[in-house]
């Protein structure tokens, strides 16, 4: 267990040394400070009497619940897109650094199996991202709930969703990195899949225009590749306290991520360093 914890700690410290991670932490802190001090809500008997943003009175009839949902939705959306993209940018090089000659052979000389070594690394990356997610999304939820007394517990589900989707995309980095040891290629493929998911999200409209073969190809891609864009809808619904009717994009993405970790793990286990 001690070697595994050592690997976990090493990864967390490697990420802590990255400026992008500190940047994410500072941006999250700024968002939390803005919501805490710049957004003033005057709630009387459970209804919003007045709202001031940076001291300026918000005009028009604003519903308290809608305001809370809107703030949470904006922050969760930003955490999902901007947060994950930046977190991948920060953590991508960590995996290929792990595979560097002189680093990996030293780690493999320790009494730890390759499986545990990789699990410790991935665990360390996830743990760091969990910390950032809980800090930002948990912080927003707590602040808004205390200010508005609207306790949208469903919003907290966006933390595991954001973390899981980061994990899915990090799985791509692990798979590509295990074969190529190239940070650039790993990030290009990962970001490429995110961009491709923008097209996959329009599955209904696009397949209507396609012939039999191209439709089959597109649907295969839709069901195989991660549906990063479509999962935004799930995060948005959870932020607005609405029930999620379709979990398929999330579940198929999780399966894709699991396959990536499996392929990357097998290659990591079998390769010579």
């Amino acid at each position: 267990m001690l070697p595994f914890l050592g690997m976990l700690q090493l990864t967390v410290r490697e990420l802590r040394a990255k400026k992008v991670i500190w940047g994410l932490f500072l941006i999250s802190s700024l968002v939390l400070l803005i919501v805490t001090f710049a957004l003033n809500l005057d709630v009387v008997d459970g209804t919003l009497a007045s709202a001031r943003i940076f001291g300026a009175e918000a005009t028009g009839g604003i519903d308290l619940e809608n305001l809370v949902f809107a703030v949470q939705s904006i922050v969760a959306g930003a955490a999902y897109w901007l947060g994950i993209l930046l977190a991948l940018f920060a953590s991508g090089p960590i995996f290929t650094t792990l595979l560097t000659k002189g680093h990996i052979d030293l780690l493999l000389s320790k009494p730890i199996s390759r499986t545990r070594l990789l699990t410790g690394h991935v665990g360390g990356v996830w743990l760091t991202m969990l910390g950032l997610c809980v800090y930002l999304l948990g912080g927003i939820w707590l602040i808004m709930s205390l200010k508005a007394e609207v306790w949208n517990a469903r919003f907290l589900l966006s933390i595991p969703i954001v973390l899981s989707m980061f994990g899915v995309m990090y799985g791509v980095i692990v798979a590509i990195g295990s074969f190529t040891r190239s940070t650039a290629l790993s990030l290009i493929v990962t970001y490429g899949l995110i961009v491709a998911s923008l097209g996959l999200a329009a599955v209904t409209q696009i397949t209507e225009q396609l012939g039999f073969v191209s439709k089959a190809v597109f649907l295969t891609l839709y069901h195989t590749l991660p549906n990063f864009t479509e999962v935004t809808t799930i995060v948005s619904k959870l932020s607005q306290g609405e029930p999620v009717s379709d979990w398929y994009p999330f579940l198929s993405s999780i399966l894709f991520g699991a396959a990536c970790y499996l392929i990357g793990g097998i290659k990591f286990y079998r390769r010579d360093f």
């Binding site: 410290r13 040394a17 000659k101 002189g102 680093h103 030293l106 000389s109």
Partner: peptide, 13 residues
């Protein structure tokens, strides 16, 4: 076993 590789890459931070 204790091992010192030739071109070691220690975390320099």
């Amino acid at each position: 076993v204790g091992y010192l590789p030739e071109k070691h890459e220690f975390p320099d931070f």
